[in-house]
Write a protein that binds this DNA or RNA. Structure first.
Length: 446
RNA sequence: UCCUCGCUAGCUCAACGGCAGAGCGGGCGGCUGUUAACCGCUAGGUUCGAGGUUCAAAUCCUCGGCGAGGAGCCA
C-alpha cells in the first residue's frame, strides 16, 4: 500500500492509498464523518461511512479531537465537493490508525485570533492553513532565488554572524561577550565580507539571518530577518538593476508555478503577480522627489498630506514609498539617492557628489523597499576619507581598504529582505507571518 | 524615544453608571455530503492590577502592567 503525500494525490485517483497526518477539522453527520486531514504537503478530506467500519472505530472518529494524529487508508476519489489544498479529491476511510487522540483543549480555533494570542501560540499557529501557505511560499522563494543565482554563475559564500564591529556604522547592533577579545556583534550585513569574496570568486551571494537592535515597531520590521546579499565584480549600477529584475521575475514565476494553490488559499490576486516581468520602471531620486511634490499638492486629506511632506534630501518614509509605488503595477527602481542619507561606501555619481550610485527596489501595493543596493566605492583614498568623515575606526576597516589597494574594480551588490518579499507575494499585512518564529522588539517567545 | 488605541468565559467580541451576555471551542444527544456544517441541551467569570469618585463601577478618574498600530531608523 503506497503512502502518499496530499500534494500528489491527483496521481492516485482510483487507487487505494495511505496518508499520514493530523485532523485539521471534523464534521460528523449521523452515520457519516468528514475529516479534513493535513499531512504537511496539503489538506485532504477523508470520508467515513458508519457501514464501512466497525462500530468502535466509527465512534472514535466521531469524537476524534482536532489535531489528533492519524494514518488513514482508503480509495482516492475525485469529487468537486471536497475541500482542501489542492482540493477536489477525497479519501474514503477503510482503515484508520489513531496514533494519538489529541487533548480536547486545543486552543487554536479555525477562525480569527488576536495578534497577541496567535503569536503566543505560534508553535501551533503555523499548523493553520493560512500560515502553512505563507511559509510554503517562503520556502519556494528561497529555493527560487538560490536556483537563479546558482545557475547564473554566483558562488554561495557564507559570511560571519559574529562580527567585530558595525559593518555599516549606522544601525544599533546586538552585543555579546567574546572571550578575551572584548565585544562581538551580531551581523547586520555580510556585504563587506562579500566585497572581499568577489575579488576571489567574481560573483557571490550570502544568505542568512541578519540582526538589528533598533526599536522599530512597524509591520515591516523584525529584529531578526533573513537577507540575501549578492555581490558582483566588474558590475555597475545598470548591470545590477538587470540582475535584480531577472532574479525577482524568476522568483515570482517559480512561486506562481509551484505555489498557486497556496496563494489562492490566501486570497491573493494572481493576476497582479503575473504582470511581473522585465523591464521594471527606473526613476531617479530627483524625479521621484518631483512626483512626491505633485502627490503632496494633490492630497486633500490634511492628515495624509502631512505624512507626504517631502523635500529633496530626505530619505523616503513608508507613506512616500506607498504613494510612489501606487503609480506602477511592477516593482520600481529608484536610483541616485542623496549621499547624506546612504551608507559611507557608496560610489559618488559622476559630477554630482551630493548623489550616490544607490538603487532601491520598491515592491508594488505598498509593500515598500524589498531590495537596497549600490555600486561600491572603488577608490582607496576616497573610501578612507569617507571612513574619517563618518568617524569610523580606520583600524577596523584596514582589511576593507586593502581590497582597494590590490586590484580594485568597479563592483556592485544588493540586499533583499526575504520576509518583505514573501509578504508582498502572499499579500499579507505583516512580515511577522512570513517567518516561522518571528523576533520582534516585544517578543522572543516561543 | 514619541503619538494613538486596546485589555470582559479557552478564543472572538457585546454590554458604556443600574441583574455578566452571545457566537465559536469543550461535554451530552440528533442527522448519509459537510465546506468555519446545522439543530437541541449543558458546563464555563478575581471584567489586566492597585487606588479613588459614587447609593451603585466592566463602564468615570489617577497610577501601574502587558500588547498592538504608526512615526523615527531600516531590508
Amino acid at each position: 500500500m503506497a503512502i502518499i503525500r496530499v500534494e500528489e494525490i491527483s496521481n492516485f485517483v482510483g487507487q487505494e492509498a495511505t496518508i499520514q497526518g493530523w485532523v485539521y477539522n471534523r464534521t460528523d453527520k449521523g452515520k457519516l464523518v468528514f475529516l479534513l486531514v493535513r499531512d504537511g504537503s496539503g489538506f485532504v478530506q477523508c470520508v467515513a461511512f458508519k457501514g464501512d467500519l466497525d462500530e468502535a472505530t466509527f465512534d472514535q472518529l466521531v469524537r476524534l479531537p482536532q489535531e489528533s494524529s492519524v494514518v488513514i487508508t482508503g480509495p482516492v476519489r475525485e469529487d468537486k465537493r471536497a475541500p482542501g489544498i489542492p482540493g477536489g479529491y477525497e479519501i474514503g476511510v477503510k482503515h484508520v490508525e489513531i496514533i494519538q487522540a489529541a487533548d480536547a483543549d486545543y486552543p487554536m480555533a479555525l477562525k480569527d485570533h488576536g495578534v497577541d494570542f496567535a503569536l503566543d501560540h505560534r508553535h501551533l499557529w503555523i499548523r493553520m492553513q493560512s500560515q502553512w501557505a505563507v511559509l510554503r511560499v517562503r520556502a519556494a522563494v528561497i529555493a527560487a532565488m538560490r536556483e537563479w543565482l546558482d545557475s547564473n554563475g554566483f558562488v554561495n559564500m557564507d559570511t560571519p554572524i559574529l562580527t567585530p564591529a558595525a559593518c555599516e556604522g549606522t544601525s544599533t547592533l546586538f552585543e555579546t561577550e567574546y572571550f578575551d577579545e572584548g565585544k562581538a556583534y551580531l551581523a547586520q550585513s555580510g556585504q563587506l565580507y562579500n566585497e572581499a569574496n568577489i575579488m576571489a570568486f567574481g560573483k557571490v551571494y550570502c544568505f542568512g539571518p541578519t540582526f538589528r537592535a533598533e526599536k522599530s515597531k512597524t509591520r515591516r520590521h523584525l529584529t531578526e530577518f533573513w537577507m540575501l546579499e549578492p555581490e558582483i565584480a566588474f558590475c555597475n549600477l545598470d548591470g545590477m538593476m538587470e540582475i535584480e529584475e531577472q532574479m525577482v521575475t524568476h522568483i515570482v514565476q517559480r512561486v506562481l508555478r509551484d505555489r498557486g494553490p497556496e496563494l489562492k488559499s490566501l486570497g491573493r490576486d494572481l493576476g497582479r503577480l503575473e504582470k511581473i516581468a522585465p523591464p521594471f520602471p527606473r526613476i531617479s531620486y530627483d524625479d521621484a522627489a518631483k512626483k512626491l511634490k505633485e502627490l503632496y499638492e494633490a492630497e486633500t486629506d490634511p492628515e495624509k498630506k502631512e505624512l507626504l511632506k517631502f523635500d529633496w534630501g530626505m530619505d523616503f518614509g513608508a507613506p512616500h514609498e506607498t504613494a510612489l509605488t501606487a503609480l506602477y503595477e511592477k516593482p520600481v527602481f529608484v536610483y541616485g539617492y542623496p549621499t547624506a542619507v546612504k551608507a559611507f561606501y557608496m560610489e559618488p555619481w559622476p559630477g554630482r557628489p551630493e548623489v550616490c550610485k544607490s538603487v532601491d527596489l520598491l515592491a508594488p501595493e505598498g509593500y515598500g523597499e524589498i531590495i537596497g543596493g549600490s555600486e561600491r566605492m572603488s577608490s582607496h583614498d576616497l573610501l578612507l576619507q569617507r571612513i574619517h568623515e563618518h568617524n569610523l575606526p580606520e583600524e577596523a576597516f584596514k582589511w576593507y581598504l586593502d581590497l582597494r589597494k590590490f586590484g580594485s574594480v568597479p563592483h556592485s551588490g544588493f540586499g533583499m529582505g526575504v520576509e518583505r518579499t514573501v509578504a508582498w507575494l502572499c499579500g499579507i499585512e505583516h512580515i511577522r507571518e512570513a517567518i516561522a518564529f518571528p523576533r520582534t522588539i516585544k517578543r522572543v517567545y516561543p
